[in-house]
Write a protein that binds this DNA or RNA. Structure first.
Lengths: 231, 231
DNA sequence: CATCGGTTTCGCCGCGCAGCGAAACATCCG
DNA sequence: CGGATGTTTCGCTGCGCGGCGAAACCGATG
């Protein structure tokens, strides 16, 4: 049991090499808030092509800095663990104990966020739970389907009937939220629902993060539709 | 005043690139104890040629990770500041507040050490101070010269007369100790004195560090010669 | 003053790797 | 099923840079 475990020259060099490329550094920084992001988004963030990004992500994965979560045709990359995040933070802030997460991305402060274009976070989970409970969502062999009473309620809340009606033909997929570890509505249905909520002004995208901010009117509407946020 | 200063991708990549080469990583690790080492020694430690090492040291210097202290024809490199050391330690130990310095190199525990082949550290400073005070060392325009009474005392302490006598022809140079910030005897005289003390068994080299361990007999001899170590 | 030893500069070689486009592969969609 | 989208693999090109030997530079040495 050695008291202090300084890395040897090769371990240190290997870690440094992983940071040494601006594209990789950009990817790591983008993931510092604990989010999991698909390869394509990281490629755009880093400013490189998809092929290049894939190679970088493979290196970071092999190097143990990233973990991957496969979901359909997407591959969500995130930092491997808190230790990696702590190392990266240490490079920036030599003496500070821990840097607080950016407010917009802190799971405790961010009640809603996008999970690749559909609503997730606390609000997404609450909506899924409530609608399953009252039968507005039905889970079948092909996934989640929205039911007619939900459409009526949405039209009653001001949505265009054709927009709401189209939702009946879309399938949803149960998606486990990273931070909540509970189910929410993904798939085409989840995306369409989220897009419609954005159009209706119930939600607003935060500028540079994946956070979604419910408006005051949106919160009222959600309450009307049976979706309650715990205080 | 931004509250948390995460580096941008280029700063992070630049720092990583400096670590990315095993030779550079070895140099940095060798300097983690706060020591200042000449370029040649670092080249040997890293296992590369002098030319290659010089290029690496230049990069580390330009990158702000090292500082250099020119002393005659030697160039002593050390970590630029505590912040750099803290960063490197953080890479190894994500959560530990600070790693204690290796015992052998801790200035508080190491009473004597070599400053490029001559005696430095607490013991070196004490010897220089005492001998200047009692006139055994004289500071002239050409540097430090040992005086006859010192030679007599050394012969009385068991040194060969010709070994001790040769010291009269050698010049010493006042050398500021890094950790003590006080004068000690460097130059040919300092080296010859140190070599003779090693031969006489007053000092012993520590295996893998620059520490010098005075023997029990050595401590007695130093006391006889007017050199007192503060407790 | 001639010499020696430590260090840096210069010139060259060769490897590693980042970047892209094209193509292959997988998944999802209506 | 056929088209669309996200991702990885493959092949290729070019740059960056680590390595060394030779030579230049400088201070120290006797």
């Amino acid at each position: 049991m050695s008291r202090s475990s300084l890395p040897n020259r090769y371990q240190l060099a290997e870690f440094g090499a992983l940071l040494a490329e601006p594209a990789r550094a950009a990817m790591l920084l983008a993931l510092m808030d604990g989010s999991a992001r698909p390869a394509g988004e990281l490629a755009r963030t880093a400013g490189v092509g998809a092929a290049t990004a894939s190679a970088h992500l493979k290196r970071l994965l092999d190097g143990g800095l990233l973990a991957v979560h496969e979901q359909g045709r997407h591959r969500y990359y995130r930092l491997a663990d808190d230790e990696v995040a702590a190392r990266l933070e240490a490079l920036a802030l030599p003496r500070a104990p821990r840097v607080p997460r950016p407010a917009g991305s802190d799971p405790a402060l961010c009640r809603a966020r996008t999970c690749y274009r559909h609503l997730a976070g606390e609000l997404g989970v609450a909506m899924c739970t409530a609608w399953l409970e009252r039968g507005w969502l039905q889970s079948g062999s092909e996934g989640l389907r929205l039911q007619a009473p939900a459409v009526e309620a949405l039209v009653g809340a001001g949505w265009e009937p054709d927009v709401a009606g189209r939702l009946l033909r879309l399938r949803g997929r149960g998606c486990i939220d990273w931070t909540e570890r509970r189910l929410h509505v993904g798939g085409p249905l989840g995306v369409a629902l989220t897009d419609a909520m954005l159009d209706a002004g119930w939600l607003r995208r935060a500028s540079r993060s994946r956070a979604l901010l419910p408006s005051a009117d949106g919160l009222r509407r959600f309450t009307q539709l049976g979706v309650r946020l715990e205080p």
